[in-house]
Structure formats: structure tokens, C-alpha cells
């Protein structure tokens, strides 16, 4: 008995030592990173920050209410960018996910290619896609739509292919065993199984995309970001606060709307 006790304590000590080392490393890394950032910071500006912020807020009042009318079209464009971008991404991702899922992929090389597309799309934010696309296509809503869809393809495909990989194999076999073609098998056994999570993902992504499409305009790709850029560069703070309020209500609306849609469809 005492021997057992001793062993247990020893184990405990090693674990505690490891934990202390882990925390120490974490804290050291934090201090190290903090020093780098601190060295690159103009501290007087930061000290001044709170005052600047409150001045800024003061300058926003009174809000320029009539400016709201100028925002109707940009808001419409913002919703369009998010919606069409999401639809395009969904259509593309049906294909990409099918190639990327281990159990449906026709060939390992195609699978690797699909995985590469997914990680590339996921690593690069819509704003960066938008910068590239504005150079190529010129400014406008189209660049925004494509930027949003390029960013979303990876996200939707990843969640979709993961849920394809989790399907119940026997349901597929059962349809296969009736002599159904590959495509019919896909429609009758794979699609119904992944449908709920797919709808959930698509709606969720649309919700995120509303947020994303409020900024692609900053680089010229359409939507309310354009107005935001103008207001800030022109120091028109009473306009800016209207824009902020519009963004806030747009995002809240999209959250409610997507929750509702999800409830209906699933």
C-alpha cells in the first residue's frame, strides 16, 4: 500500500512540473511578444487614446440623419454581395467537397487538389481576394461577389466534406445493392444524410458573409464599405456614425433571419 501511494505522488509531481514548465513558457512567450509590439508603439499616442476616442465620439454627434437615404443602395449592394457570393460558393463547394471527401473522391490526386483549394481559400480573407479582384475586374459589386465566394468555398467545402465522411456507410451500400447507378446512389443516400448540416453551414456562412461584405467596399469592391471609407477619409464623423448604426442593424437582422431560415429548413 505505501509503495503505491509513493508511486502515485511521483507521477503527480512529474505532471505538476510539466504544467509549471508549460505555463512558464507561455508567460515568457507573452512577455517576449509584448516587448516586440511595445517597441513598435508610439506610447504617447496610446496614452492619448482615451481622450482621442471620446473626442471622436463627440464629433459624431449630432448624427447626420438624412445621410441614411444615401445608404439604401450601398446596403442593398452589401446584401447582394453576401447572397450571390454565398450562392456561388455553395454551388462550387458541392463539387469541391465531393472531390475532397475520402469516401466519394474519384481519385487521390483530385482529393489532394481539392484539399489544396480548400486551404488556400480559407487562408486568404475576402478583403485580400477583393484587392486582387479589383485590380483585375475593376471596382464594383462583381469583384465583391467573387471575393466573398472565393473565401467561402473553402469554409463550406470543408464542413461539407467532413460531414460526407461521417455518413452511415450501410445506407449507401443498401442503395448500391439495388443496382442503382453511382449518381442515383449519391442522390438517394449521400445527399439526404448531409443535407441538414449542409443547410446549416450555408446559412451560417451567409450570416458571416454579411459582415464580411461590409468591408470589401474599402478597397473598391462595392457595398457600404465604400461609404465608410469616404466618411473616414473625409473626417465626416456624423456620417460615419450613421454607417456604423446601419452595419449594426444589418448584422443583427441577418442573425435573426438566418436563425429563422435554419429552423424552417432543418
Amino acid at each position: 500500500m505505501p509503495k503505491n501511494d509513493y508511486n502515485w505522488q511521483l507521477k503527480g509531481r512529474v505532471r505538476i512540473l510539466r504544467e509549471i514548465l508549460f505555463w512558464a513558457a507561455g508567460i515568457w512567450l507573452f512577455i517576449y511578444c509584448w516587448n516586440i509590439i511595445s517597441a513598435r508603439t508610439m506610447w504617447p499616442f496610446v496614452y492619448d487614446g482615451a481622450e482621442q476616442a471620446s473626442k471622436l465620439l463627440m464629433r459624431m454627434f449630432p448624427p447626420n440623419w438624412p445621410y441614411f437615404l444615401n445608404l439604401i443602395r450601398p446596403i442593398w449592394d452589401t446584401i447582394t454581395i453576401a447572397t450571390l457570393g454565398t450562392i456561388a460558393a455553395i454551388l462550387l463547394s458541392l463539387f469541391v467537397a465531393f472531390l475532397a471527401a475520402e469516401n466519394t473522391s474519384p481519385h487521390p490526386i483530385l482529393r489532394q487538389l481539392a484539399l489544396l483549394i480548400i486551404v488556400t481559400s480559407r487562408s486568404v480573407s475576402s478583403l485580400i481576394w477583393a484587392i486582387i479582384l479589383v485590380i483585375i475586374l475593376g471596382p464594383g459589386v462583381l469583384a465583391g461577389i467573387i471575393a466573398i465566394s472565393l473565401r467561402s468555398v473553402g469554409f463550406v467545402s470543408k464542413l461539407l466534406y467532413e460531414s460526407i465522411e461521417e455518413i452511415d456507410k450501410e445506407q449507401v451500400e443498401a442503395v448500391e445493392a439495388t443496382g442503382a447507378s453511382k449518381f442515383s446512389t449519391l442522390i438517394y443516400s449521400v445527399v439526404p444524410q448531409v443535407f441538414p448540416s449542409f443547410v446549416g453551414t450555408a446559412v451560417y456562412r451567409w450570416d458571416i458573409n454579411i459582415r464580411e461584405s461590409t468591408v470589401v467596399g474599402l478597397v473598391g469592391a462595392g457595398g457600404i464599405g465604400l461609404q465608410l471609407n469616404e466618411a473616414i477619409l473625409g473626417l465626416k464623423w456624423p456620417d460615419a456614425i450613421i454607417i456604423f448604426m446601419m452595419i449594426l442593424s444589418l448584422v443583427l437582422f441577418s442573425e435573426l433571419f438566418s436563425a429563422k431560415i435554419r429552423k424552417i429548413l432543418i
Binding site: 513598435r40 508610439m42 499616442f45 496610446v46 482621442q52 471622436l56 461590409t214 452595419i247 449594426l248 448584422v251
Partner: peptide, 19 residues
């Protein structure tokens, strides 16, 4: 509700460029 870039604009205006 606000995309990171929008928030970043605010902070850049308030405390200046930089990390």
C-alpha cells in the same frame, strides 16, 4: 457585429498606425 477591419479603422484613428 463589426468586421475586424472596421474595428481596426477605429483604433488606428484613435492611437495611430502600428501593431
Amino acid at each position: 457585429s463589426f468586421q475586424e477591419v472596421v474595428i481596426a479603422i477605429f483604433f488606428v484613428v484613435v492611437i495611430g498606425f502600428g501593431p
